[in-house]
């Protein structure tokens, strides 16, 4: 069988000049992005910087003859894990930015000192080592008939118990996440019948006017204009109205009092943001 091994990354064991260049450029980028993760004011920026770091590392994996991990890094980490971070960020509040003022006295200084005490000996110690030319994986890859078959063989045969254990771990994690994310319903779910009854009995059987209707700007914080040109306060999301005192004027009492609570009767037109249909999650925004 003289099949040529399915070798996608044609990088030799030796470290060539091109690799060095790539390392320095990409390495700088990765370090800067990592610093960005730590020092961004907003969590979303941190997440984006994280994506840069991860992709950079994926490239390094590729250079280091680990094509499988490169793919996994991008698919699992950048694709799945980071997206999970972003979802949670959105749940917690995308735009929220942390105060960077340190609350623990002397903590930041101490952290810097200890981190330096950690990094400097580590780097200097590592720099003192000359590893020489790397052995490289080409021989092993050739013997195993490919990089991925090699890893597969190792995982399936030699590390099979660890592999099974990680499987169990993942299932446990999924169950744990389900349990943690589940929240018990505190009040009885409203049926469609109840909702329709409330709506007919309420002040506004008809849908409330959507925001921005006939207004100059088609935005959700722009109240709709009534045929006589006056402003319809009903057209504004009560959350927005609550935050902006200017908008509160003329908002019907039943709505102004229910700010923050589940917007039961709010028609779709007034619920342009994602929170509109949620009932039991309450208000997510701070």
């Amino acid at each position: 069988m003289n099949t040529v091994p399915l070798q996608t990354t044609a990088v030799s064991a030796a470290v060539g000049g091109g690799e060095a260049a790539t390392f320095y450029v990409l390495g700088t980028l990765v370090v800067l992005a990592a610093l960005g993760v730590v020092f961004s004011r907003k969590a979303v920026y941190s997440a984006l910087m994280m994506a840069v770091v991860m992709i950079g590392l994926a490239v390094f994996y590729g250079i280091n003859q680990a094509p499988f991990l490169m793919v996994v890094q991008i698919v699992v980490y950048t694709g799945a894990v980071l997206m999970l971070f972003l979802f949670v960020l959105m749940l917690v509040g995308v735009s929220s930015s942390d105060s960077l003022v340190e609350t623990i006295r002397g903590h930041r200084l101490l952290t810097a000192v200890i981190a330096l005490c950690f990094l400097v000996p580590l780097v200097s110690g590592l720099a003192a080592i000359t590893a020489g030319e790397p052995v490289g994986l080409s021989a092993g890859v050739a013997a195993a008939g490919g990089s991925i078959p090699w890893i597969a063989g190792e995982i399936i045969y030699r590390y099979v118990i660890a592999f099974e254990a990680t499987g169990a771990l993942l299932i446990t994690a999924v169950l744990g996440a389900l349990v943690l994310a589940h929240s018990a319903r505190t009040k009885k779910k409203r049926t469609q019948r109840q909702m329709s009854q409330d709506r007919i009995r309420g002040d506004h059987p008809t849908p409330l006017p959507g925001p921005g209707t006939y207004a100059r700007h088609n935005a959700i914080d722009m109240p709709a204009l009534l045929p006589d040109g006056s402003v319809s306060q009903l057209s504004i999301n009560p959350v927005l109205a609550a935050r902006n005192p200017e908008l509160q004027h003329g908002v019907p009492e039943d709505l102004s009092y229910s700010i923050g609570a589940a917007p039961d009767e709010k028609p779709d037109t007034a619920a342009s943001d994602n929170d509109g249909q949620r009932e039991d999650e309450g208000s997510w925004t701070r």
Binding site: V72, L84, Y159, T166, A173, A177, L180
Partner: peptide, 13 residues
């Protein structure tokens, strides 16, 4: 690879 798997599980929980 195992580290990645465990990290993924950890992130979820």
């Amino acid at each position: 690879f195992f580290v990645m798997v465990v990290a993924a599980a950890e992130v979820v929980v």
